[in-house]
């Protein structure tokens, strides 16, 4: 492994007792269903010059048993929820008498969309997948909004993102997206909370090291929503952002806040080039 500079966290870890540095990402290859070969390690995008040489999917930081859960669509428990979304896709809801399928026809028409999300919409506003789904629900279907991290919403985000599985992440960071991207980058390097930790402290300076018994990854979002064994359900990006910031003992931003949209764009751009892995399985 590359030995990185010790930060406050690494100092804490050492204070907690001797521990083995088990090293960074493993060298396994991520192939799904024995046929879809994923780009799970690749050269870092240009904007990360001087930060990373290589970007690495969180899959490489997990144990063999957790990794195996993602390599077969039947073993992957997230697919239970994808199945539920396949059913929901055809369900007519709301005053307008429409389902997702009424306008969009087959869900495969969404291929490529999530690889380019978040994006700036025609009104100049940064939108993420949950925004697109809720806009369809409220405006076109005249149905109720779905709760951001609710099972309905995250199952549908997973189903739509699955259509892009294997495609490289490619979010735009220039043009109209630039100010949002800058805002997200600023947040990424801001130390939050009583522990004064930024995203970068763990996921840039210490990936491959341990935080207690957790193996820190680069914090890539290319596999979200991800089935987390801890909660045994699909977890949204914003839920995870909130968890991280809360763990710094800070007041966190809300799921669906503009701050988290901007952070989502910036973090997604750090994974530009990695395959969309949705729905991933993590610890």
């Amino acid at each position: 492994m590359k030995f990185k500079a010790m930060t406050a966290i690494a100092g804490l870890l050492i204070a907690a007792g001797p521990m083995a540095f088990a090293g960074g990402a493993d060298d396994d290859t991520l192939i799904i269903n024995g046929e879809i070969e994923m780009i799970s390690k690749t050269a870092a995008p240009a904007h990360l010059d001087g930060v990373f040489d290589e970007i690495v999917s969180g899959w490489h930081f997990r144990t063999d048993e957790t990794q195996a859960l993602e390599t077969d669509d039947f073993d992957n428990p997230a697919m239970l929820f994808v199945d539920q979304a396949i059913d929901a896709y055809d369900v007519v809801e709301g005053e307008a008498g429409e389902s997702c399928a009424s306008c969009h026809e087959g869900v495969e028409n969404f291929a490529g969309l999530s690889a380019a999300m978040p994006k700036v919409d025609a009104d100049g506003k940064l939108v993420v997948m949950e925004d697109l789904i809720n806009e369809c629900r409220t405006e076109r279907m005249q149905a109720d909004e779905w709760k951001w991290s609710g099972n309905d919403m995250q199952s549908m985000v997973a189903l739509i993102s699955l259509q892009s599985r294997g495609m490289p992440m490619d979010v735009a960071i220039d043009g109209a997206a630039a100010p949002y991207w800058e805002q997200g980058k600023e947040m990424y390097y801001t130390r939050y909370g009583q522990l004064e930790l930024s995203c970068a402290n763990c996921h840039e300076q210490n990936y491959g090291n341990y935080i207690r018994a957790d193996h820190l990854s680069q914090g890539q979002t290319n596999g979200f929503p991800t089935y987390r064994l801890k909660q045994a359900k699909l977890i949204s990006k914003h839920n995870r952002f909130r968890g991280c910031i809360r763990d710094t003992r800070a007041e966190t931003f809300a799921e669906g806040s503009d701050e988290f949209r901007a952070l989502e764009l910036y973090v997604a751009s750090r994974g530009n080039g990695l395959s969309v892995e949705t729905p991933a399985v993590r610890q």
Binding site: F74, F81, Q84
Partner: peptide
């Protein structure tokens, strides 16, 4: 045979 069922 593999089986999976959604249940809390």
């Amino acid at each position: 045979i593999k089986t999976l069922i959604s249940h809390p």
